[in-house]
Amino acid sequence: MRLNHTQGAAGEAAALAFLQKQGCKLLARNWHCPFGEIDLIVKNGNTILFVEVKYRKNSGFGGAAYSITPAKLLKLQKSAEHYLQQHRLSHTACRLDAVLIQGNDAPQWVQNITG
């Protein structure tokens, strides 16, 4: 059960608006596959970005970045690979990014979260 669904949806909307201001174009939102869900899929120039959005009301329990675990990264990688294969984009530049939102602070765009 998602107790903070409204806050999460608002966080995703804020993240999308932020990315669009940076010149990104929305390809998909809350895209599901057998491996999991990708919050936002956007195109920035010639690069497809698979974006994990994390909203936290405050920095308790490590803040927004803390919840992106190695297991979550693996799911994101598999989901992104599935998207690329399904859309015949396997030779397209891409990366995994995150947009972190904490309270009323401005969104923080973390690029290439896999290193």
Rank of each mutant, 00 (worst) to 15 (best):
E37V: 12
A28C: 06
L96H: 05
D39F: 07
R88F: 09
S67R: 08
Y55E: 06
N58C: 08
D105N: 11
T47D: 04
Q85V: 11
T47Y: 01
G45Y: 01
G8T: 08
G11H: 13
F35N: 15
T6G: 01
I68M: 04
V42F: 00
Y83I: 02
L49E: 15
A13S: 09
A98M: 03
A64R: 10
T69L: 08
G115S: 14
A80H: 03
C24L: 03
C33W: 00
K72D: 02
A14Q: 14
F61W: 07
L49W: 11
D39R: 10
I41A: 01
G11W: 07
G62N: 11
Q22W: 03
G11P: 11
A13V: 00
E37N: 10
G63D: 07
A98L: 09
I68S: 07
M1A: 15
R56S: 12
D97C: 11
E81Q: 14
Q20R: 10
Q102V: 14
K43I: 04
G45T: 00
K72G: 00
T92H: 12
L89F: 03
P107I: 07
G45Q: 08
Q22S: 07
N112V: 08
E52F: 04
R29Y: 01
I41R: 02
G115F: 04
R2Y: 03
A13T: 04
Y55C: 06
V51W: 05
N30W: 00
D39I: 01
V99W: 09
H87W: 09
K72F: 00
S90I: 15
A106V: 05
L100I: 11
I48F: 09
G103M: 10
R95P: 03
K43A: 04
H87M: 11
I48E: 03
C33M: 00
L27H: 02
T114E: 14
G103H: 07
A65D: 10
N112C: 14
N104C: 06
